[in-house]
């Protein structure tokens, strides 16, 4: 959709306020970049604990995103297509982690999967499996906080697909799986990509639930945001540089995904 600059004239005052808004968002990042001790880069980038934090962050955030897609898409499907008693409550529960302080999410996860948790105690007693304070816990903490973003985006995407297209597919002999794979998923692809990016970004930046439920063990559960926090206590330079690493990684992925994957011939065209 091209923006028509001839017919759209901004109401007076909107642009100055927009500039202030952009400055508020950009200044902290710019200030940080100004103060980065660039000479310390080799030392900090080659530091083993920092590298392992980066690798761990990438691995856990990708796993949390995959888990969000695997179980979040069916949830989005369910609330988009079916009506049943208590649906409002279920929908509210799905988005609750978005408004909850992540620390609370971490505490909640301890009560489910901690060693004495509702499920965790049986996992420990029967199978000897411990989840809290492991890498799996970091993945689950990120999933808990990030999956709602995917669900919300996908629910609205599924709802936006014209029911007539689904109806005509079925009358042409397509079973529900065929309709999903060949009509609904292709049509929601832009939203799917946007949801993936948003979910992954949220998972990568996750702090509160992770430190509560997975702890801050270097090399095992210390993701990049936790490493930044830890570095802040010892020296600000390291924290600054790690933050820059986090920014560069996020920014690169956001920009490349948005420009390459969401462009498609049918994004513009509506029948």
């Amino acid at each position: 959709m091209s923006r028509n600059t001839h017919t759209t004239r901004s109401p007076r005052g909107v642009i100055p306020v927009a500039v202030v808004g952009l400055l508020l968002l950009a200044l902290p990042i710019i200030a940080m970049l100004i103060r980065v001790p660039w000479s310390a880069i080799p030392e900090i980038v080659t530091d083993e604990s920092n590298r392992s934090a980066l690798v761990l962050s990438l691995r856990t955030s990708v796993l949390a995103t995959l888990l969000s897609v695997a179980v979040g898409a069916p949830v989005a499907w369910l609330i988009a297509h079916h009506t049943f008693p208590g649906m409002r409550i279920i929908r509210a529960l799905c988005v609750l982690p978005m408004v909850l302080p992540p620390v609370v999410g971490g505490v909640a996860l301890i009560y489910v999967l901690g060693k004495n948790g509702v499920i965790g105690q049986y996992l420990w007693d029967w199978f000897g499996i411990r989840i809290a304070f492991t890498e799996s816990a970091a993945v689950l903490a990120q999933f808990f906080v990030a999956a709602p973003y995917f669900i919300v985006v996908m629910e609205s995407a599924f709802t936006s697909v014209d029911p007539a297209l689904v109806g005509v597919s079925r009358s042409l002999g397509a079973r529900p799986w065929h309709v999903l794979l060949h009509v609904q998923l292709p049509l929601v692809r832009p939203a799917l990509i946007a949801g993936l990016v948003l979910t992954w970004a949220r998972a990568l930046g996750e702090f509160g639930a992770t430190i509560t439920f997975a702890g801050n063990t270097q090399g095992r559960t210390q993701t990049l945001p936790l490493a930044v926090y830890t570095a802040l206590e010892s020296g600000r330079d390291a924290a600054l540089l790690l933050s820059v690493v986090l920014i560069v990684v996020s920014f690169t992925v956001l920009v490349s995904l948005r420009t390459h994957w969401t462009s498609g011939v049918f994004r513009r065209g509506q029948a």
């Binding site: 007539a164 109806g167 597919s169 049509l187 029948a271």
Partner: peptide, 8 residues
């Protein structure tokens, strides 16, 4: 109504 062609 409207044909409902698949836009993609």
């Amino acid at each position: 109504q409207g044909g409902a062609l698949f836009p993609h």
